[in-house]
């Protein structure tokens, strides 16, 4: 189950639970709101996200792609444990700004 709490100005969202393929609709809806915010920097707070799979990583990449098209940047913040390891394996530090 994926939890998404979006800040009022839609520039920041805190994810919790699992980001896996079956959550793609919820994630896409949140991503659309963030993109529509027109903010230059979009921050995903991953502190309470406890599991991500390859499809979840793919969704982060699709958000990045969409953001780049709109001259926006995606920042991944506070990844822990399994999520942190998955970002490392996939070398996401070359694609996103990562914040701890």
């Amino acid at each position: 189950m994926l939890g998404i709490e979006i800040q009022d100005d839609s520039s920041r969202a805190a994810l919790s639970g699992q980001l896996v393929f079956s959550e793609n609709l919820a994630f896409r809806q949140a991503a659309s709101r963030m993109i529509a915010s027109k903010r230059k920097q979009l921050v995903l707070d991953l502190l309470n996200l406890d599991f991500i799979d390859s499809a979840g990583l793919g969704m982060l990449l699709l958000l990045r792609e969409e953001a780049m098209r709109n001259q926006q940047e995606v920042v991944l913040s506070n990844a822990q444990s399994q999520v942190k390891r998955m970002l490392e394996i996939s070398r996401f530090e070359t694609l996103f700004r990562l914040q701890s």
Partner: peptide
């Protein structure tokens, strides 16, 4: 190997092999 780093799919097996 890991796919083109920005590709949104095709990394499942690479993740298994890494872990």
């Amino acid at each position: 190997a890991l796919p083109d780093e920005s590709r949104a799919s095709g990394r499942g097996l690479a993740i298994i092999q890494a872990l």
